[in-house]
Design a protein around this nucleic acid. Structure first.
Lengths: 349, 349
DNA sequence: GTGAAAGCGCTAACAT
DNA sequence: ATGTTAGCGCTTTCAC
């Protein structure tokens, strides 16, 4: 590993250093690294020895300049939302970094002015800093996908394109409706019939999608949904207020929520009334956040397979970036799972 | 912004494109970007117009190759710990990305095999992929700092060097002892006298530091600490067990914990006994996690000024990376604050 | 104040 | 199977 005294001392070893030490040309060293098959076995061995002895690793800037690829993936992160239980993004970032590494990519983070969704993308693109982007917030009206498409920038979205207007791009998403249906069926199986829904406002397609899972599961069992649903802001207090109204007006015995944040609000409302979550009224959240994992009673929650999302995204990215580009599956929809904890309680008669 | 048809069509515009359009040499364009002072006002204006029209931005690979700086900062992230309330790292990442951006740096993420703390650093260093690192886990016996020092790799640690063995490097940290003292004083001011401590095992210097804040605050008021402390693993169940033992054996009226995770365990123990957190027994955690913010009752917690930590780290980094390097302050210690919520309850007689 | 020449470290294309 | 040539886009000398 240590540098031997062959060179003056400036910086890491280069191709030329390895070539000199191995007694071959620079190109042969390059081939040893990138196309080992081209070398004779003994030459390859000699070069590899020199590489190891010198601790050589190709200079990324030089390689990028030549190959026009940075092996960097750009990911825009938003400031964390405090006062909520939302944690999807952070878990996803970890998964993406892990998976990218295996594919030879690193993740470059950038922010994030919520008012200007395009900020950051443009600069990185024009300076050829990244090979591709992972776009995470494909909410309705978000111009990123269309804009990137138009710039012919390779990208994969975590989230379906909810608008039909733009040409379809590659995406990976989790089937929120299926997750909520899973949660609802779980409650119905336990004997509940009046299962309420607390979700987000109607302009959130993700929220509407999740809601549809609840509707579907209820209707499949011939149960009514009228008066059992509420659409609010994604905050704890909104969840709590919504739960109070529903408890007064519709007497549900169980709640399914679009987020853990809302579900925590429901837990608060129940406690306020002396009702025991899990025993008296069941609650299921969405995201399997740290909060769901540590509150008492444990909050049952729909868990997104973020590791798998990352794997699919990176696989899609690799196809997009390969030469020639491999045509990618239009989109990949993954199934979430249900983490059952005490808040959805014991089996009921 | 749009490309005009001056060039065949391949990729983003280069210096040469701008030079041609502005009717100057490539070098003059480079100067316009990097040393505007050298140009005559009218030339500068002409060049800048061409830059804007073409949407030119310097190619990062080329610039990196030439200047031997990538303007990238490496940050190693660990897989998130599920089942805990720990969230310091994620909040810090956001802050670091924001602050780095203002200084012209981007953050490059890498993992993270817990068994091999050096993994990742070496490759990025040898391939000159990053200019510097931010090292976050400076626990006792962590070889990263010493190793990076030896490699002459620029880095700043978030966390003090707890070992005296290695030469001192630049660091930024939060005064955990001061934070815990703050929490303890807050409880003492409310009339508590038997304030218990639940912290981490003795081999955690961070834990011992935080504990010392509790000891100091208690002794300052002439109060005993004997029998009031417990050292356990950082899990909810450990916090709960520790609380149960302390409640049985020492009858504390308040708890200060080394983490929100432990504090949540205390909340569970109290509930189990029909005791009301905040009313009957006060609890304060550490980290101001999402969990602290949404549980009921709201968990009072020590909050680390992570935005400020990021600012100090980036400032130190800039000094380290400037030419010639500006000698950096040995270390910067920042004061946490206390977020008071219902778990530390109303004023007591 | 501006331009010309050189070269950072690497790899693609060609020659041997 | 290996070596030679050229050039990616930029900035750092050094002339003018």
């Amino acid at each position: 590993m240590a540098r031997s005294g062959s060179r003056p001392s400036s910086g890491p070893p280069t191709l030329a250093d390895v070539a000199e030490r191995a007694g071959v040309s620079r190109q042969t060293v390059s081939n040893a690294v990138n196309n080992p098959d081209l070398l004779r076995a003994d030459t390859l061995a000699r070069v590899q020895t020199a590489i190891t002895e010198l601790g050589y690793l190709p200079n990324r800037a030089a390689r990028s300049l030549r190959t026009r690829t940075s092996h960097l993936i750009g990911l825009r992160i938003q400031p964390a939302q405090e006062g909520t239980a939302n944690a999807t993004m952070d878990r996803f970032v970890h998964s993406l970094v892990e998976t990218s590494k295996e594919a030879g990519y690193h993740v470059l983070l950038f922010t994030g002015d919520p008012a200007d969704p395009l900020a950051g993308y443009d600069d990185l693109l024009r300076s050829t800093a990244v090979d591709a982007f992972v776009v995470t917030d494909t909410y309705l009206g978000n111009p990123q996908a269309g804009w990137l498409d138009q710039r012919r920038a390779p990208f994969v979205a975590f989230g379906r394109p909810w608008e039909a207007t733009h040409g379809a791009h590659a995406w990976v998403d989790v089937d929120g409706a299926a997750g909520v249906a899973l949660a609802t069926q779980h409650l119905l199986d336990k004997g509940h019939t009046r299962v309420a829904w607390i979700g987000w406002r109607k302009d959130s397609p993700i929220g509407e999608d999740r809601r549809s899972g609840w509707v579907r599961a209820m209707h499949e069992r011939g149960l009514p949904t009228t008066g059992l649903a509420s659409r609010v802001e994604d905050t704890v207090v909104s969840g709590r207020s919504a739960a109070e109204v529903l408890l007064d007006e519709a007497e549900p015995t169980a709640f399914v929520c679009a987020s853990d944040t809302l579900a925590v609000g429901v837990l608060h409302a129940l406690h306020e009334r002396g009702l025991r979550a899990g025993d008296d009224v069941a609650v299921v959240g969405f995201d399997d956040s740290q909060v769901a994992q540590v509150v008492r009673p444990g909050l049952s929650s729909v868990r997104q397979p973020l590791e798998q999302v990352a794997v699919e995204i990176v696989a899609t990215l690799e196809g997009l970036l390969s030469h020639p580009p491999v045509p990618q599956a239009h989109g990949v929809l993954l199934e979430p799972t249900l983490e059952v904890r005490d808040s959805s309680g014991p089996v009921r008669g």
